[in-house]
Design a protein around this nucleic acid. Structure first.
Lengths: 257, 257
DNA sequence: TTAGTATTATAGTATGATTTATTGGGTCAG
DNA sequence: CTGACCCAATAAATCATACTATAATACTAA
């Protein structure tokens, strides 16, 4: 099982990775303002103490993520935010390392509340027996991790990723790192295993999601996931307003209907 | 106005861009199978006729998008699909250049039907007067482009991007390239300006979205966008089943509520 | 068998030289 | 004075080569 969003040992990274992260974080913090031209190759080489090869690989990495754009003669420009690929695992990591505020978590949860119920509804239609077993294994791992917040987070992420996988939609499958970021951060604010009552409530909600998918019931599965996410948002106090803004319908446009 | 998903002059690309695209497409087509180790640096240099520097920059670009991972001694491995960043503009471009099937469009529309109504609902709450004007300008440009499919597509994308911008959610703002891919492809299947009646119907729906956002009415705005997307899906014949799978609520978790 | 060590293939890093493309200024004809 | 054109300066893009670090493998000794 791959856990995109949670591999955080942080150890021994390569030179260009360090440089990419350094420049990337400087951009996000506004030290290299949007629209500005950042220092030339020679300056950056000296600033980070690496060769041009490593520096250029770092810049190519950042360019691939939409943070910068290099043009001959004019220099390397910091691109506007809407060119940044916010679903990128590294960009999320860098945000997390800088510390995220409630606003950032709110953005994450706004996306989650839409895409995860979709994943549940389509997974309910398309899941294979193997994929269902994968979800069950993850849920059992969560049961066994009541005492370990870290282990619980890992198992929780595995559960959500198994659902994404079963949705059979590659776009949904690639948001695992985003969910990992959301889980890791919200659990540092308010642990779901801090009390036995809370733990049981969380597990009940996850079980409801699994049941819905197991019974091939897209309504039950998506509503259970909606409730789960909404309650998580309330736990970390990012919910705005009492009622929903509106509702939207989910249609299946691909695969088994 | 930046148009992420439609900048398609295509020619005059740099060496590493060509190599990245070549390897990337080979991976997507299965010529470099998932999980396999692709040829070593020396072989790839010869294969694409570039220097080590350019090759490595291309590989770093692909690594940044989650397609590959390099490890010393073991080689460069093609990663599993759920590591790929499907929201990346280049990856979408490469898919488009290879030709997309109905299944791929279905995946795109499944995401659109969730995220764009969300963007409309939040934009209705958070939009500024300037942002509303931007949408109006885009809509007027669509009116003026009844005869030009290319011009219409560009204006249509600008309209959708203006909504994303007004949603004030960076994650939504970074999916512009995905919407551009969806529009460009579906318009080649079935042009919305092929007949005057169809054109008028499409414009009526877009106007309804704008009106909802102008009146700060999240229900009207999101429902109009839902209808718009559903009809587009029907036009290109990717709709599955008669009724919706289920419905989900939209909550605001950030910004002005 | 096992533990430790040497080998070696491969990606990673460094450096300097060369090429290419764009900007900005300057020249000259209109 | 205006515009088109050319030229030089500059910074990124590319090339070529050499060297380093890492980890998988094979080999040796306990």
């Amino acid at each position: 099982m791959l856990l995109n969003g949670l591999r955080r040992p942080v150890r021994a990274r390569s030179a260009h990775d360090l440089v990419a992260r350094g420049i990337g974080q400087n951009i996000m913090q506004g030290r290299f303002p949007i629209g500005s031209i950042l220092p030339g190759d020679a300056d950056l080489m000296e600033l980070y103490g690496v060769s041009r090869t490593s520096l250029r690989e770092a810049l190519k990495t950042l360019a691939a993520k939409g943070l910068i754009e290099s043009k001959t003669k004019v220099g390397t420009k910091v691109l506007d935010r809407n060119n940044w690929n916010m679903f990128d695992a590294d960009i999320l990591d860098w945000h997390l390392e800088m510390g995220v505020d409630a606003r950032f978590l709110g953005w994450l949860f706004e996306i989650r509340q839409m895409l995860e119920p979709l994943a549940c509804a389509t997974a309910a239609m398309r899941r294979t027996p193997d994929q269902l077993e994968e979800m069950q294994r993850a849920l059992e791992a969560m049961y066994l991790c009541e005492t370990s917040r870290q282990g619980f987070t890992k198992a929780d992420l595995a559960f959500h990723q198994a659902i994404l996988e079963a949705s059979a939609n590659p776009f949904l499958q690639s948001i695992g790192s985003m969910i990992g970021a959301a889980l890791a951060t919200s659990f540092t604010i308010s642990s779901p295993v801090s009390s036995d009552a809370r733990f049981k409530a969380v597990m009940r909600q996850h079980q409801a999601v699994l049941d819905g998918i197991a019974q091939r019931n897209p309504v039950a599965a998506s509503e259970a996931m909606s409730a789960l996410i909404l309650q998580a948002a309330e736990r970390i106090q990012i919910k705005h307003g009492e009622s929903a803004l509106t509702t939207v319908q989910i249609h299946a446009f691909s695969g088994v209907a």
